[in-house]
Design a protein around this nucleic acid. Structure first.
Lengths: 158, 158
DNA sequence: CAGACTTCGTGCGTATACGCACAACTTTTC
DNA sequence: GAAAAGTTGTGCGTATACGCACGAAGTCTG
């Protein structure tokens, strides 16, 4: 039974280590590791709805909202009315947000280097692939109580 | 730059997916995913100090303390005076705690199966190894430019 | 077009995940 | 042995991470 829990525990340990390291690294910029993820996501695709932003992070929409409130207050992001959907709001980086993100990207370099340095280039690639496979499997809503071992990430029978 | 952040993002996504899935799975037992980790750690080595428990989880000692308060209140763990060190307290599972853990272990089986099912057996092994490598690298206090770090016991090249 | 259903964002409550400062205690040092 | 230094647990503050319920607005029925 210990062998079976090795993978989940290793995943947890690795993520928490990454998170702690990043947190320490970004602290002097007054930005958290998760705020960095949010800013990075916006840097790659601006003017997303909060929902879409949350989906890409990936994080819970209500978590993202809490983060946006803090970031908006500090002028790093702005939220505007959606052009066509009046329920939604679009989120974008401000000029200050873009500047901050560039600083953070540089500041985070040693952490990424530390991760990558522990692996062969091919291993890094492989690791990313395996993690994605695992994440997809876990997100594929496959078995709350049924037997259907649908190995593809599609819908479940209603 | 997108390629460089792929691995950290994939790690984050995979962990969060695991966490969400586990959380949902354990909810009906009124136990969180992290409480499960704590109980599992105690199940593997009882009568640890809070510090040692935190180290093995791995989690922050003050986080572990908060968790212990909740779990103790519910009678799943107990904290006793340490036999020789009067600063420390030893933590153990109660009978109810052991029973709960067995239930949780079973309840969590589908999640582990879902993870493992997405991988070849050899891949699972490899993934665990790579994650451990990454975690070790991140925890190895290599200090890329700091000055005020001297606490941890790890080696650093000077 | 009206009702049902879905989706978006908000607000609230709980549990991590930490850092930091502090008191009590242990170990080391001189 | 007493002072210095280190360790253990506690308490506090902030930021996630989420679920759930709600109102508002969009979409889909008939």
């Amino acid at each position: 039974m210990a062998t079976e829990s090795k993978l989940p525990m290793a995943l947890r340990a690795a993520y928490l280590a990454l998170h702690r390291r990043s947190e320490a690294r970004f602290a002097r910029y007054d930005v958290t590791a998760d705020q960095f993820v949010l800013l990075a996501t916006l840097a790659r695709g601006d003017a997303l709805t909060q929902r879409e932003l949350a989906r890409r992070m990936p994080s819970d929409p209500s978590t993202v909202r809490a983060m946006l409130v803090l970031l908006e207050r500090r002028g790093l992001v702005q939220r505007d009315a959606h052009p066509t959907d009046s329920r939604a709001r679009t989120v974008s980086l401000t000029a200050a947000g873009r500047r901050k993100f560039r600083q953070l990207w540089t500041a985070g370099e040693p952490v990424r280097a530390q991760m990558l340095g522990a692996l062969e280039p091919s291993e890094a690639e492989l690791l990313a692939r395996l993690l994605t496979q695992v994440a997809d499997a876990l997100n594929a809503q496959s078995v709350p109580a049924g037997r259907s071992n649908s190995h593809h990430s599609q819908k479940v029978e209603p």
